[in-house]
Design a protein around this nucleic acid. Structure first.
Lengths: 143, 143
DNA sequence: TAACACCTTTGAGTGCACTTTAAGTCAAGG
DNA sequence: CCTTGACTTAAAGTGCACTCAAAGGTGTTA
């Protein structure tokens, strides 16, 4: 029940961040650590979950500044839930837009790879430019 | 047939880059421009396609240094096609891995949004933590 | 004639997110 | 006793990709 306590070095390995970064995040107000009688930081299971969660948010493209705002809102209690929800929704929408764009770029890249393959096995004429080759897929616009 | 010529300002708007960035890319060897009799840069339709293509590569996460390498290889002719193909393939694989990771983060984010909604309409108990709420989805691991 | 868009080189500034260093202290473990 | 790992503050450095400024030049358009 008491829960294991982790010092910064161990905790860093656990969450996949450097001790530098953990202290930096604490400076920035993203993490709060507890201290023992010698003012040595320690972290608990709860902190693992919290860091895990902020890494999910970071992973979807949320910047540190927005993350700070999120943390500030959280500290203000349940009445800021609508605002926090809206932040997450926007982050989600943005990330989904990013994925869509990435996939669009990937499509061209894939076709370039196909074109190289065609050049190598001579199913595509040596003189055919990639641009001309790409034209045949221009139903893409209507997708 | 001759093809329109664009000066840097017009070209910049066309491809969505600043004139600064275009000159910077030229310094870096990513773009080659032609010059008129007054050494004023001009660009053609072909350049639009080339910039378009490198922006696709950038859009999939290729860094300028790698892009430079790609351009150097291209200048060496068809015998570097296998290496270029391999570069693109790796870029593609990396981008797909990024997408997968992003989607994983998005899943957690979506669940947090659902959890907020549950709190607001009281279908989730006030005392239930997000961590506990998340547990019920832990078939996710086996996906 | 003046404004405007371009040209040059060189170097500095920006923003983000760390990352490291310096210089000193402290306490537990082998 | 010495190493290891933690602590502090403040500041500098890193990497990337621009972005802008300074200072002086040329050619076209109103």
């Amino acid at each position: 029940m008491a829960g294991k306590k982790y010092r910064i070095g161990e905790f860093a390995k656990l969450v996949g961040l450097s001790t530098y970064t953990l202290r930096y995040y604490e400076d920035q107000g993203l993490i709060v650590s507890q201290r023992d009688e010698n003012s040595v930081r320690y972290y608990t299971e709860n902190d693992i979950r919290w860091v895990g969660f902020i890494l999910h948010l970071k992973g979807t493209g949320l910047r540190l500044n927005d993350l700070k705002r999120y943390v500030r809102l959280r500290a203000e209690g349940d009445r800021t839930i609508p605002e926090r929800r809206a932040m997450l929704q926007k982050t989600k929408d943005d990330a989904e837009a990013d994925i869509a764009e990435l996939q669009m770029h990937l499509k061209v890249l894939s076709r370039k790879i196909d074109w190289y393959d065609g050049k190598v096995d001579h199913t595509i004429d040596d003189s055919e430019s990639f641009h001309d080759y790409l034209q045949q897929f221009n139903d893409t616009k209507g997708e």
